[in-house]
Amino acid sequence: MSNAKNNATAISTYGLGRKPSIWENLSNEKYFKWILIAPLLIVLLVFMFYPLIYCIYNSFLQGGVSGDSAFIAFENYKYMLRDRSFWIPFSRTAQVAVICIFFELLIGLGLAVLWNRDFKGMNLVRGLVLLPLLVAPLILSLVWNFLLEYNIGFINQIFVTIGIGRIKWWSLQMALYTICGITIWQWFPFSALVLLSGLKSLPKDVFEAARVDGATGWYTFKRLSFPMLSPLIIIIVLLRTMWLVRLFDPLYGTTRGGVGTELLDWMVYRTTFVYFDVGYGSTLAIMSLYLTIIISAILFRQLIKALNTDK
């Protein structure tokens, strides 16, 4: 109705041989849709694209906030590729991502399968398991620092009571795995929740048919449930990879990057906001972004493939 009216206005104005007024132009569908999305575009430009462009610009500079800065083209990138103190956190980040995603999926899947049946107190259990997701990660890291303290930490006290003895959670050999443990503990409910919703939405008739044909539980899971869940698994891997590349909070309240736990994002933070070497810090941040984009693109292709197979 509205379109017809607009078109009629346009025809009549053209028919009269005069230019359409600014309001007539704005109400034209061609422009109107842009007006509607303009607020969002402005927000995106100001809060997403501007910082990104500014970060890329900074990555070509030497120095930063305090001190003179000079344009040095790709020198920061060249330096980064030679910088051993970059490659160590980089490989550690990859290691943490692999460990965390593997265990989060394993525990999450196991839990989702267990939850996918009715039992007494189901809602309470689900609610309790979700609790770690609801607490701020920074607070959790501080709490875990106390819980895992060697002498007076609650966990070691329990271990002493049951005869295992104290564990050096923050030793050079253990600290990175402790960080992984804290992260897995916080994020496995996310995988469990997503996979549970996937399991709940699987078509019942296929499983009925498998049951009638005498398929075992494991066979049904391997041949039906798991393949059908694969798009969700890829989504979990995709999201968790993006988040784990930026893992920061568990370090802040515990090791602060010490005892062999410095990850990529901590290095970005340290370089940019502690040393105030904004140029090199921005380079590292951009590298982290490239990395995330590449991994996400690969996983996204896999997701599309899995969805098409599913169809």
């Binding site: 303290e149 923050w170 030793s171």
Partner: peptide, 14 residues
Amino acid sequence: SPGCLTANFDFVVA
């Protein structure tokens, strides 16, 4: 204490 490897003043005082 092995805890000293991640310790700040609070830990040492405690």
